[in-house]
Each structure stands twice: as structure tokens, then as C-alpha cells.
Write a protein that binds this DNA or RNA. Structure first.
Lengths: 303, 303
DNA sequence: TTGTATTAGTGTATTGTGTACACTGTTGAA
DNA sequence: TTCAACAGTGTACACAATACACTAATACAA
């Protein structure tokens, strides 16, 4: 979700800039397994959790047939979360939903955390399919951002989990892939592409929080008006309080028209962010037209 | 933290656009208490939680002198969170830290949730003081964003709590005030100012998550290299997997130079966001020079 | 076919956690 | 001085996660 500056850990990142491409294929062949092995050495439990998301468990030949699959457990848990929130997802509740004893689940997941990992990845689902043919990068990125926001709002309990942290499953990576694809078409350097991934994803997640919070309240049976009242009360305390003059003025200012919907607000901000990226693309192309002195494109902080 | 479209609930927001300023002072006098009263009607418990953050509890005259203050409890809890993470903050641990029994805390906080509210607000602390004289809005907003990010990274356990949701205390509002102030100086309409608040805060929170995650790992005693390895393992699974071609390409691409620090990355993205806002300001000023037809400044999604 | 290793789900027990409730002792106002 | 109001304590309970030993089912080797 959060864009990583993954260049950092990769072996070749330390090399000299210009000749780095030379031994690329060699390091590429090693990298994947090297990365996995390195992580396993660091934290065996995390490795186990990661494997539960990636490896397909082949059934052992001996022993009784399992009565349910790990996926059944995950689905049961998701059902509970949908109905009564993440707090209701207990090992006992999940097993009861399945019709088995609590300890039965532990045959499939070493602990609750591992189950939650699986729940997160399953609940994210797959990102929207890319359009055929691919559109303009800007439209495609916007589509992705809206889809991600919609996904989070549809499952507001998901955002209670630290899904920026490892381990990351296939669905998680699919969402990253789905935004890297249009971003790669901009024509920026890999480093800059990674930065833009951070920007888009950061904005998308951060700016969705209010809507997610509202969605969570809805799921608890709170009406929109009630939620608005609850939030408004604390913000209203700014009014008449000398410590918050600017915010109080903002709150009491006439709105000057019908308020935007939350989604329209999100889109408005998103367009600003995309504007900023577009501007960078324009200026860095202009700069690239001149003879390059530094090995990487010049970054300009203003314009 | 997340910018609210608080215009929505306010009574005057429904009125006709142009003449809305007329009855402003009348509604302003009512608004504050109305908002608080409305919230109290909706959820008495939330009202209680909010009051614990805002009202100074005057000591009753009768009875024994209290051995400690609510603030002592909060400080003890924060100390535990700093040392052993949020998970270690249990009512028993906090009371033990204070040297009293578990139930003593319940004299001051009706339940753990209310204590956590107080912890969040206290741990946020005050935002950086504004410069004298005020600088350019852009520099001031950037300073704010960096300060907020630093605050979150310094207390990575804080981000585990849903601090976008109500109730919001004085420190929380102070942070909002501190960014609304420079944003108000841009000269945008109140609605647009609120939108920019959402954009800046959304980006700041969202784009800080990776660094927060790293900080959390550090607090647990994980080295940076170990954390990087753990995250890298799952991302590395994209390499050679046909489902993630764009992301795999990004990961294996030569970085073309030394990697940016996380903070530099954050700033890079922030500058893009500020660029986008700046562009909006420029175009909306250009539009405003023409005769205004619509009651609000025209929004342009591209440029 | 029969025994046996292996595996699936169960039963029971332990530890930790939030919190209700009744209690003891302290304090200042009547 | 008396007593109502309050502060902190002790005890108890409901759940939650999970370790461990157990029973029963299954496939393969003999």
C-alpha cells in the first residue's frame, strides 16, 4: 500500500550510479530468493506468516480429511467483521461460526495474528481490472485511487488493522501493481516512479480516513447525522476559543454553496495531487532536454 | 486530523449561497453550544469522553484528597507505551506504574477507551510555534507537515489508535489550527481552504505510515536492516511472478544513484502536493479575474 | 487384511484483561 | 461532633488467547 523506497535494501543500490546496469541480470536472479531467505533468518515467525499467504498448502496424505479449509476460516471471520466489527472477531466467534471448537482453528493458523494477516489480504480483494487499451496515466491512476478508497470504505474495519506492515499477501501486491502500471507509463525514472507511488497511495489512504470513520459509524448503526453531530461537537469547541482563531473562522464562515460530498472532496484533492505530479513531469522533461550533468534527473522543489 | 467538510452539518450551509453571511453572527452565537448539545443527545458516553478532554475537573470539597491526578495516569500510560508499546498499556500495568490498584484508575476514567482518548491528546503535544513574522504559506505548511510526521514517528504507537475519530481534544485541535492558519493566508474560499486542509493532512498521515512502521519496529528492538529484510521478502515475491510485471520491473531497476532517505522522500512528495495546490491557486485567481457566474470559484480538474 | 504413523478436531486448563460491586477509611461542612 | 461525599481496595466474574494431552480417522506398509 505504502510505496516503499525498496531501492534502499537492494544490493545494487549501493553501487556506482552509471555502471549499475551491468551486473543486473546476475543480481536479479538471486534477489528474489535472497530477499525471502534474509527475512526468514531475521524472524522465523514472520516467515511463517508470509508463507501462509503465499504458499498453497498441499494436503498431507495421511490422517483424517479436514472438515474445513483455511479459506473457510477466513471467510467466517470476514463475515463476523462485516456484521459486528473487528472487535467481534475472536477465535471463539470464528470457530462457532464454522461450527467447530475454538482450538480447531489453530490447526491452520498458528495464532490469531496469522489469521488476521489472511483476513486482510482476502478482504482487500483484487484491484479493478486495467482498461483495454490502457488510458492516459492520469485517468488510470485516478480510477485506482477511487477504487482503493471505495474498497476501504466498504470494509471500514479493515483500516483498523496495520495493513501497511508486513506481511503482505498477493492481493496487497496486486493493488500496488495496479497503480505502478500506469505510473510506469509516465516515463519517469524508477526512483521517481516509486516516489509517485508513495504520493498517490499516501494521499489515498490518508484522505480516506474520514470517510472510513463515517462508514465505521454506519456499520455500528449510527446515522450520518449522529456521526456528524459527534464529530461536530469537538470541532465546535474551537468556536469562541482564542486558541483556535483560524479554525473557528473556517468553521463559522459561510460555505458559499452546497457542500461537496466526501467523494467529491476526495477527488478534488486527488486532482491537486495529480496536478503536482504532472508539473514535475513537465519540468523534469524540460530539464532532461539540457545536457545531463548529475546522474539522476534534477529535482526541483518549487517550479 | 483529517480535514472535515464541517460545512455540511452547520445550519447555514443549507441556506442560499449569496445571502448566507447575513444571519451569521446570530447563528455563530448558537452554534458552539448547539453542536455540543446535539452530540450529547446522540451519545452520552461520547459526550463524557469529550468532556474528560476539555473540561477541567474541579475537585470536590468533601472527601479524601486524591493521591494522584488524571494526568498522572496519562503520563504513566504514555511511559509504558514508550517503553513496551501500546499493547503493554493495560489497566493493571498503568496502575502498577502509579503504585496503586487497578480499580483506582476507574475513579478518573470510566473505561479504558476514555483513558486512551486522553493519552492520544496528551501524546500529540502542541504543534510547533508559528514563525514570527509569518512566512510564506508554502513554507509554513511544509514545516507543519514535517513536524506532524516527526511527531508520529517519535511515538509510533500513537498511530495504532484511531485518532482520526472522535473525541478530539485541545492538542488535536491545535494541530489543525496550526495548519489552517497558513492555509487561510492563501486567499482561497473557506470551502477550498478546508479541502486543502484535507489534502495536506491526508498526505502527511498517509505518507508517514511506512516511516512509522519502521519506527515501531525500532522500538521493538528490530534493526533497520532486519525490518527492511522483512518487508523486502514479501515485495520480493513480485520478482519473477507474472502477476506483478510493473512492480517487479520497478524493484529490479537500477536505482541510478544513492537512495533518498525516508524524510527526503516525504518532502519530495510534499513538494508535489504543494505544487498542485499552488497551481490551483494560480488558475482560480485567473478565473476570478473574469466575471463570476457560478457562486463559487470554478474548479478545473486538469489545467 | 492388519497394524501403525500421521493427522484432524476436542476437552480441559491456564494466564491475562477489562470491569462491576461492595467495602474501608478520610475529609470538610453542618 | 456528626455524617455525607468521596478515594482507593479487595474480590469476583466474564471472556480471550492459547498450551497440552487426548480421541478418532485415514492411508500406507507389512
Amino acid at each position: 500500500m505504502a510505496g516503499r523506497k525498496k531501492q534502499h535494501p537492494l544490493p545494487h543500490a549501493a553501487g556506482r550510479p552509471t555502471a549499475a546496469a551491468a551486473d543486473e541480470s546476475a543480481s536479479r536472479a538471486l534477489t528474489r530468493d535472497d530477499l525471502i531467505a534474509a527475512a526468514a533468518r531475521v524472524d522465523p515467525d514472520l516467515r511463517r506468516r508470509s508463507e501462509l499467504l503465499w504458499e498453497d498448502r498441499s494436503r498431507p496424505t495421511r490422517g483424517p480429511k479436514p472438515a474445513f479449509t483455511p479459506d473457510d476460516v477466513v471467510q467466517a471471520a470476514i463475515q463476523i467483521a462485516e456484521a459486528d466489527g473487528l472487535g467481534a472477531v475472536t477465535m471463539q466467534a470464528v470457530s462457532a461460526q464454522l461450527g467447530y471448537t475454538t482450538m480447531a482453528i489453530y490447526r491452520y493458523f498458528p495464532h490469531k495474528e496469522a489469521l488476521l494477516d489472511a483476513i486482510v489480504d482476502a478482504a482487500m480483494g483484487a484491484p479493478p481490472r486495467p482498461t483495454e487499451p490502457p488510458g492516459e496515466w492520469r485517468a488510470d491512476v485516478a480510477r485506482w485511487a477511487h477504487a482503493k478508497r471505495a474498497m476501504l470504505c466498504a470494509r471500514p474495519w479493515l483500516a483498523e488493522l496495520p495493513f501497511v506492515a508486513a506481511p503482505h499477501g498477493p492481493n496487497w501486491l496486486s493493488w500496488v501493481e495496479a497503480v505502478v502500471e500506469p505510473l510506469s507509463r509516465i516515463g519517469l525514472s524508477p526512483v521517481d516512479t516509486g516516489e509517485m507511488l508513495s504520493v498517490i497511495d499516501g494521499y489515498t489512504r490518508g484522505a480516506s480516513d474520514t470517510a472510513i470513520s463515517l462508514a465505521r459509524a454506519r456499520a455500528r448503526g449510527t446515522s450520518d447525522a449522529e456521526w456528524t453531530a459527534a464529530v461536530g461537537a469537538d470541532l465546535g469547541r474551537a468556536i469562541g476559543d482564542a486558541r483556535f482563531p483560524a479554525f473557528a473562522a473556517l468553521m463559522t464562515a459561510p460555505s458559499g454553496g452546497p457542500a461537496r460530498t466526501m467523494e467529491a472532496s476526495f477527488d478534488f484533492g486527488l486532482q491537486r495531487v495529480l496536478d503536482g505530479i504532472e508539473r514535475y513531469v513537465a519540468t523534469s522533461k524540460a530539464t532532461a532536454a539540457q545536457p545531463i550533468v548529475a546522474p539522476k534527473p534534477v529535482r526541483r522543489s518549487r517550479g
